[in-house]
Design a protein around this nucleic acid. Structure first.
Lengths: 247, 247
DNA sequence: CGTAGCTTTGATGTAGGTCAAGAAATGTGG
DNA sequence: CCACATTTCTTGACCTACATCAAAGCTACG
């Protein structure tokens, strides 16, 4: 049963979970409900924020600057654990906003640390999940710092595609994508109008179409080459690290 | 004794460590030696890489793209735990290079997981340290994505200053800084020549001088305002999260 | 079926890149 | 402690990727 929980399935692919641990994970899902768009789940600068395990829908985490500019740090899709940093730290350093209406389980600071106390190996699992997030953010930083606009945008959408495929949403032909070109712009550090031009360019090159809430890969392989996309940093295929079996 | 180890001091500020845990931390330091510049400690794409606890000197972690461009993701200073992701994942997604000759303790995959097995609370400590790293990378991403060149550069140096102060290197007047303008350029996503111009601009505005291996703050407060630097994301001051005392 | 949020496009401006070359530091061997 | 080499730093002239401003055409849904 707990293996039906996407979050459990995800971390189980890394750390072998016993019955006790699976129960603890199931326990984390008890406060599950729906959240509408327009209300942030986590607020930058506030204390005692909760984390959330996303069951359905899309969200994004972002930071706002002085001058009102915003940087979207990452998109969250079903199975993702979001706001972990806002639980581990006194005050949250970021916001999380639902992009679509979402279903999520709230995990309070107390919940999480209780879980760690009872089943310490889950801390390792969360450490691993957090490291995977970090790897994505690093790749995002590399894109924003070094890749030209079109490559950067393509790269982001390829990453999303890879992540969605892992949870059974989307395939090689494309995926349902509720984000707007404004979201995309805030994520890749461009203006919406430039994002639009860049998407047109990619579409006219016959590689990918971003339209009507759907991303379609017209020529997946060319796109991968174009964006210099190497999915190893997502590190999701293959067996878990052998040494963990010893735990 | 273990409290003289900067790394132990750092994590002890978050998770209260017992004797057993302090011993485990000390144990992690057993393979300590010197590493020269020019040889990477961790290599992108290779398996079974070690992590390192940096005792002295500076290093940086970075990624290289197809076209040879490089993005420096973070600088590491004494007390930092580096390469954690390359231990948790099968293959490393980044490189780590010493900027100065360094002293560091190698921590192999086996070492780390053994430690986690024996003293699971250290996994929480490492999770916290990793989250703090993530917070820095996020802030870095925000800078590269949204801040103009000068603000971005100033911000990076202010962050370094804050981190160095915590380990007793540098103060409000400035700090010894072995990084070149080329490093800075690769970190902030600009060309070295533009970094140079931007540093001149900041110097001529009477805010900060970057020269001869030293950063001097000529007007710290103006610089903080200019760079919109808010250090709460470093989350290092004040007592540990209360709930942890229960562990 | 109107109105608010998206998308698309054109004309023009600017931050930061590129190319080139000289001046300081810094390091090395004698 | 000095010559010489190498790595950094600095500046100038010019160029391009992306931003800004402005406005029109979609799409959706209340």
């Amino acid at each position: 049963m707990p293996h039906n929980i996407p979050f459990a399935r995800k971390i189980a692919s890394y750390v072998k979970l016993g019955t006790e641990e699976l129960e603890a994970v199931a326990e984390l899902h008890k406060r599950r409900r729906t959240y509408a768009t327009g209300v942030d789940l986590v607020h930058q600068g506030e204390i005692d924020q909760s984390a959330f395990i996303l069951a359905d829908g899309w969200a994004c985490s972002y930071k706002i600057l002085d001058d009102g500019a915003r940087q979207i740090v990452n998109f969250q899709i079903p199975g993702d654990f979001l706001g972990v940093r806002s639980v581990l730290f006194r005050t949250s350093d970021h916001n999380v906003e639902p992009i679509t209406p979402i279903e999520a389980s709230e995990v309070s600071k107390a919940d999480l640390f209780q879980t760690f106390t009872k089943t310490p190996r889950l801390a390792i699992a969360v450490l691993w999940a957090a490291s995977r997030d970090e790897a994505m953010i690093v790749e995002h930083l590399v894109g924003v710092g070094q890749r030209p606009a079109a490559e950067r945008t393509a790269h982001l959408l390829l990453e999303l595609s890879a992540r969605l495929k892992l949870v059974g949403l989307g395939d090689k032909t494309g995926f349902k994508c509720p984000i707007t070109q404004y979201h995309l712009a805030d994520a890749v550090g461009l203006t919406p109008v430039h994002v639009n031009r860049v998407l047109r360019e990619i579409r006219e090159a016959g590689m990918m179409t971003f339209q009507n809430g759907r991303v379609t890969f017209d020529d997946f392989d060319s796109l991968v080459t174009f964006a210099d996309f190497d999915r190893t940093y997502l590190d999701q295929d293959g067996p878990p690290v052998p040494v963990l079996d010893a735990l």
